Amino acid sequence: MAKILKIYPENPQENLIAEVIKTLNNGGIIIYPSDTVYAIGCNIFDIRAMEKLAQIKKIKLDKAQFSIICNDLSHLSNFTRPIETSFFRFLKSKIPGPFTFILEANKNLPLAYKGHKTVGIRVPDHPIPQLIVEKLGHPIASTSIKDDDEVIEYSTDPELIAEKYDNLVDIVIDSGYGDNVASTIVDLTGGEPEIIRQGKGEI
């Protein structure tokens, strides 16, 4: 049964953030707010947690395209090939923000990402995921929460999200209503930035 933690973005309670970190370190799955839609995530270095995340999304882990959530660009060199100066400047101008950037992966990716040629990097403009990554000491793997209703597409009410995922996740962070527009996905693996999905962010 999922535990609901009311964590306020303006002043996140340290003891509750510490509980989230403990859960992630113990292989737990969390649902958390972002600057776009609510998302579901886990410890990127815990292969069992990653498999659990894939099961929740009803896909095989080796087919999963989970984003890597960072709190700044310092983790880029851990997971991606060197980036051209112009692209790096472009990235810096858009981060933090409602964007997922597709970059060429290097060979140091966590076990669950082995074999992936590219990886999606995201730095949300929201204090809670930034604080979680900072306190955890490394990024988390993440994917948006899609709604079964094709018209609604993304769930915004954390209480309804908690009901739906009650037996699938360990913690639901309630920070009030989320957005219903996902991030803009930008591919930076070619000669120039290419928008793969237009979402909340404008390029």
Rank of each mutant, 00 (worst) to 15 (best):
E10G: 05
E202G: 07
K63L: 02
A141V: 03
I56W: 03
R122M: 12
A54V: 01
D62H: 14
D125H: 04
D148I: 14
G199S: 11
L91R: 10
L160E: 12
E104S: 11
S183N: 01
K107Q: 14
I4P: 13
D174L: 06
I171G: 11
K3V: 10
A162S: 15
D174Y: 02
A112W: 08
L160V: 07
I30T: 13
K60E: 14
R197L: 11
E134K: 13
H116V: 09
F101I: 09
P124V: 00
K6I: 06
E192T: 13
A162I: 04
Y113K: 01
I31T: 02
I29Q: 02
L61A: 07
Y177Q: 08
Q65W: 07
I59E: 12
I31E: 02
L73A: 03
R48C: 05
I31G: 04
N26G: 05
D35T: 14
T189Y: 09
L131I: 10
D149L: 05
V186E: 05
I17T: 01
Y154T: 08
Y154G: 09
E134D: 08
D157C: 14
A64V: 02
N106Q: 10
K52P: 07
P82A: 14
A54W: 12
D179V: 05
I83S: 10
M1A: 14
P129K: 11
L16I: 07
K94H: 15
D46N: 15
G176E: 09
V151M: 02
T184V: 00
I195M: 03
N180K: 14
T85C: 09
I195P: 00
N26L: 10
M1G: 08
L188C: 03
L111F: 14
A18C: 11
E159C: 13
I195G: 05
G176K: 03
D170F: 07
I152P: 07
V37D: 05
T100Q: 06
K135P: 09
T85K: 14
K135T: 01
G191W: 06
T143H: 00
S93R: 10
P12E: 03
I161W: 08
V119G: 08
F101C: 03
F88C: 05
D125Q: 09
V20Y: 09
D149W: 12
C70K: 01
L168K: 01
N26K: 00
S155P: 02
K117A: 04
